[in-house]
Design a protein around this nucleic acid. Structure first.
Lengths: 118, 118
DNA sequence: ATCGTTTATCGTAGATACACGATAAAGATA
DNA sequence: TATCTTTATCGTGTATCTACGATAAACGAT
């Protein structure tokens, strides 16, 4: 079931806060986020969430239909993405509304640059 | 032992080749490279290699001195970075010359963009 | 209250990751 | 040849990852 009005708070992250983050924390954060990306299924989930229009963000179970994995496996991948900080979800009736954290990709890129190049 | 003249071929990767890569392969490649980044010690190794001046790229054992890990553990992390495609190494006398693959960070960022955003 | 839908968690099993010390392999040096 | 240095690999133990089916939990609808 897909609802049109998503109750998801637009949780966002600003890449500029990195300026106040010490290098050691940056490395740990980068490693953590990278673990989230370290599986093709999770990349695909992020892709789906990133492409979902903002006004229709509740696509909880639709992900299960797309991926060639059991529902429990998909749920686990979603959990990893939540724990590593890529997405967040809020309960919306019987299903859960997931969305990608706003600005997380830019934040991640900035982390890569700062942790490796600077 | 650090040698000044590095025998490392400047193995490089061009982010533009991604244009010819199909989405499924991109996802797998991104997941693979991300696995390489998914540990703080490996991020630090990449940082060290990225900062090492080109004319002094052979710093094999120096990495062991910097990281709070046993030599065998560092060697294993280096192996992961090699296998996932971040670095490459060539034997240079008794030590091994490691360098970061040229352009790999830009390639990685491009992969993130293409696999998630496009 | 009962049923159907949706998502999370549990239990299990096999694979992979991570750390360490010990050892091997390769080349330089005496 | 013997020895030192440097790096890779092996063996071990512990922890985490991954997948699945089964089950539980939460909510809406009947």
């Amino acid at each position: 079931m897909k609802t049109d009005n998503c109750t998801c708070n637009p949780l966002s992250i600003d890449a500029r806060i990195l300026e106040k983050t010490d290098p050691e924390t940056c490395k740990k954060r980068l490693a953590e986020l990278s673990k989230g990306l370290a599986h093709p299924a999770r990349v695909e989930i992020l892709r789906i969430l990133a492409h979902n229009p903002p006004e229709k963000r509740c696509i909880c179970g639709d992900i299960v239909g797309v991926l060639p994995l059991a529902q429990s496996s998909v749920s686990r991948h979603i959990k990893v993405l939540k724990e590593t900080g890529w997405i967040h979800g809020e309960i919306d009736g019987p299903c859960v509304c997931y969305c990608i954290v706003d600005g997380i990709i830019e934040y991640y890129m900035e982390l890569v640059k700062r942790s490796i190049q600077e």
